[in-house]
Nucleic acid binder design. Structure first.
Lengths: 293, 293
DNA sequence: GTGAAAGCGCTAACAC
DNA sequence: GTGTTAGCGCTTTCAC
């Protein structure tokens, strides 16, 4: 009998196997709607790594575009019991998806730390040493004309942006720079708002722009270029999140790199290890890399 | 009994339902490895639309990164019978994945036309009016200094690039422009090769660059900028494939738009209609839109 | 060790 | 219409 199976290279039916074993060999990758309006290499890189890692565990990745509303694709996927666990690509305050997963006691991993309000609730909370990396990089960027430096950021309800702000603040503190006179602009959602902020800061004498992510950084570069200002001659731009675009930019832009692929791979691996009952690290912390260009 | 079900808002288990019905309510979205090295809005947009459309049919989307090798994620997914059908995001000559699907008689849809060698083999072959759109746009671009125009493209084994080349050739033909003196450069894989080609063409007196896709177009712009040349003053650049980056570029770049979301949605819808035994269009052809900027 | 039987949670084909 | 039953293709248990 066993010989027969071997010879005819029999492959079990996943649905039947799953029904009997009460598991699906699928995981849901939740992609916030906002990610799809942008062109973030982060998502692409981490998704690739997650798919590759899941494959090693015989798992498939189901993409769920989270709307945050009722009849969310993720909710239906969970209701139909089509996945064993979930990976969140973003963490934020007051996130209904996170709360749903906690309520239903569904194993889940996050790319990036959870906010304190959900402390310890994820199966795996993978992150980079965000604060540390941003602090170290900020110290370097602040070593020149520190009172001409501004920090530009987007939505602070995302934990990653909070960590980066903290890193910047700690850098100023460690350099004994006054915190109150710091130029910090957050909530910069659109190219127009970024443009306005940049023009405003220039009038205040700011000429060194530290951007909290690659998306903002590119917009800042575009805005400055259109104003006839050149990096790094007239103004200096740097980013607290590297991306291929910044690396290949002419001239290149300094940044601190948090490898999205490594983050995705780690989160996926530890989550699936935990599902298999094997030993795993619930809070892996990955290193950063500073690129001075 | 039925009342009981209604009251307790019972949701059937997809694995058991699938086992009994001999279907999985999953589809595989095949992403070529090359897509993930790039930053193509095409993939993001079409993936989003496919996920949304699949959701309407109660289907989930499984991402399969195709390596083209043995033990490909897609092959294992098919072996385990975890999907009912497949969507290919790229079509190419001599594609092992396409051949595999034909061999195994698995229902599949393609984004973009199949090469002639696989004529009629897909369940659904969705495409834009690529040749027509590129011809119309090329005619406009060729209306000025036609002998100073070059066409820059990537891999011609992709059907989409063949269609675009055909469109360009037909435009020249219709304008009674000589074909033999046309500057066409294909196989431009890397930024370095693109840079070399651009510099080479400039020496030949070319100053109007028509790019076969947005990726090349951006690289061409980068190369020209670094050489101190400005679009549209010194040189003119346009693209046979639009993208948000070209639209938001300063100054903007003219392009012909083939909406990836509409393509993905249509391919997914017709494929799932066919699976349900409903009437469907096996070869939908979508319109293009020319943006002169 | 090898084989038979029950059960996973559904659908479909019967019977009543 | 409502209720019962067999079967989807596995795993697990228990008997041999």
């Amino acid at each position: 009998m066993l010989d027969y199976i071997e010879i005819h290279n029999y492959i079990p039916n996943a649905a039947a196997k799953g029904l009997a074993e009460r598991r699906t060999f699928n995981l849901a990758l939740v992609i916030p709607h906002s990610f799809l309006c942008l062109d973030l290499p982060f998502l692409r890189e981490s998704m690739r790594a997650i798919c590759q890692e899941a494959f090693l565990f015989d798992y498939n990745v189901m993409v769920c575009l989270s709307t945050g509303k009722k009849s969310d694709p993720l909710i239906r996927t969970l209701d139909h019991r089509k996945v064993d666990c979930v990976i969140l690509t973003r963490t934020a305050e007051h996130d209904p998806i996170t709360e749903l997963l906690i309520d239903r006691e569904i194993p889940f991993a996050t790319l990036g730390s959870l906010p304190n309000s959900y402390f310890g609730k994820a199966t795996v909370e993978a992150d980079h040493l965000q604060t540390e990396g941003c602090c170290a990089f900020s110290r370097i960027f602040l070593s020149e004309s520190p009172d001409r430096v501004a920090l530009l950021g987007n939505d602070l309800s995302y934990v990653v942006n909070q960590s980066r702000l903290t890193g910047f603040t700690e850098a100023r503190k460690s350099l004994s720079l006054p915190l109150d006179r710091t130029s910090v602009r957050v909530g910069l959602d659109t190219p127009e708002i970024i443009r306005t902020a940049v023009s405003d800061l220039l009038q205040q004498g700011i000429h060194r722009f530290l951007c909290m992510d690659d998306e903002i950084c590119i917009q800042v570069l575009v805005a400055l270029t259109s104003m006839g200002l050149t990096h790094p001659k007239d103004v200096q731009v740097a980013s607290l999140c590297d991306s291929p675009i910044l690396k290949n930019h002419v001239p290149p832009v300094s940044a601190v790199e948090f490898d999205p692929a490594e983050l995705g791979r780690t989160a996926c691996r530890e989550l699936l290890l935990s599902l298999q009952g094997e030993s795993f690290d619930p809070t892996p912390r990955l290193d950063y890399q500073i690129h001075l260009r």
